[in-house]
Design a protein around this nucleic acid. Sequence first.
DNA 1: CACTTGACCTGTCCGC
DNA 2: TGCGGACAGGTCAAGT
Length: 289
Amino acid sequence: MPELPEVETVRRGLSSLIIGKVVTNETHDTAKGFPNAPSDVSSFLRGATIIAIRRRAKVLLIDLSSGYSLVIHLKMTGQLVYVAPNVRFGAGHPNDSLINSLPDTSTRVTIEFSDGSTLFFNDQRKFGWVRLLPTIEVPNMDFMKKVGPEPLASQFTAPQFQERFTRRKKTNIKAAILDQSVVAGVGNIYADESLWGAKIHPQRLVGTLTDDEFSALYTDLREVMNLAIEKGGSSNHTYVNAEGKKGSYMDFARAFRREGLPCPRCSTPIEKLRVAGRGTHICPQCQTI
DNA sequence: CACTTGACCTGTCCGC
DNA sequence: TGCGGACAGGTCAAGT
């Protein structure tokens, strides 16, 4: 569920919360939560200062002064939550049970800082991961080598967007836009939202889309992702930001998870179907095959 | 290579 | 109420 806007929201939150902090300890529970962990991973981290937080596609990068980086993918249910010193059990977070209850049964990694604050990596379904590797090796990861361009980059143009799809002409547009090697960072929520905005049926084959449709999809994808970042992301399930708070984009969604509710454009009830193996939401009036 | 499907997990919800 | 099964969805591996 964390897609580009959610990961970007976490990145911004962490940037203002943990840059400059010094790691004093690290613990992780299972090989699953930290698959490439050296046996003494915590000794790699101890004493290092957080110097930058970056994002590429849906991957978060925490750069350390030691020349290593933590590479983190939240997948569907991953959370990175910062807990400041002395905020538990009330002070400033009277209603925030997540902040107060960490660590819990889904905590995979815990990183402690010298000022008494803590960063928790939680993941209910264990699909997410944290890796530790030299910062200069990050671009050589398989995922980084094949991932497509950042859709919100200022230099990324509509013709470049359209060109990315030429490899996938025989599949449907929903599968293609979810393909991270085509464009980075699009997941199920913003696929449905942008296709609704561009009035394109998700089962349309890529090869049948017109230039105007690609242009509309490019524009709407960028608009919807920028709006989602502004709203702090979408929380229809477990997603929270670095402070354990939910995002509000779902209040602005036009199609995603709105089956049975009126289309904001034409009032036809939104329908749910299955495309590319995923729950897919369309307006049957605005989006036709 | 292009494309599709299943696996990875666990919690929740729905129908019987 | 209990219980089985479908579902949630990001990515990779294995299949056609």
